[in-house]
């Protein structure tokens, strides 16, 4: 059965996920999203995966959440505090959420994974390193290329041609 740390982390993670979507201000919403991402990092610590947990904190909480925060600050003030949603859709969405949670939860509870337990030691970071440089090396190189391509692509997308043309004209 779950212990107190697990329950606290579950409450923080799920509560701040709801807060991220439902808080009126987008800035507080993105701070709540940081809570969700940090809570998932805490679950990774509980699963004896400290390397993935620290990666999660460094990449998600450290860079993605801050990037989102800065993007929110670029949007004008009225839009940050305005909730844009349909009232009718909201009830349908809540129904969809409950159907997904109950049906998937029932499938998992009935599937027999309750009986899965392990006493074996967790795989440590050496195994991950060996995986990366042996079996998964083409995927690692591909991932690097995708990251470089996406960063270049996002820089090209966000470039302001009108400002550049003005500067060239001056």
């Amino acid at each position: 059965m779950a212990d107190a740390v697990f329950l606290a982390l579950a409450v923080i993670t799920i509560g701040s996920a709801i807060a991220a979507l439902e808080l009126r201000s987008l800035i507080y919403g993105s701070i709540a999203l940081m809570g969700t991402l940090g809570g998932v990092a805490g679950f990774f610590f509980l699963l004896d995966a400290p390397f993935v947990a620290l990666f999660q904190i460094a990449v998600y909480v450290g860079s993605i959440a801050v990037l989102i925060l800065f993007t929110v600050m670029l949007v004008k003030r009225e839009l940050i505090f305005k909730k844009i949603e349909d009232k009718r859709r909201k009830f349908a969405g809540i129904g969809l959420m409950l159907i997904i949670m109950v049906s998937l939860g029932a499938v998992f509870l009935d599937s027999g994974i309750k009986t899965i337990t392990t006493d074996e030691p967790a795989p440590d970071f050496r195994d991950i390193g060996i995986d990366f440089v042996t079996y998964y090396w083409p995927a690692l190189i591909l991932m690097g290329l995708i990251l470089a391509g996406s960063v270049t692509g996002s820089l090209v997308l966000a470039r302001r041609e009108d400002v550049e043309n003005d500067q060239r004209a001056n």
């Binding site: 993670t13 679950f43 997904i100 509870l109 899965i116």
Partner: peptide, 16 residues
Amino acid sequence: SELIDFTLVSVALLGI
């Protein structure tokens, strides 16, 4: 904690 606990948290996050 058991596998089912983590799976249920994951299902809740997916639903949200």
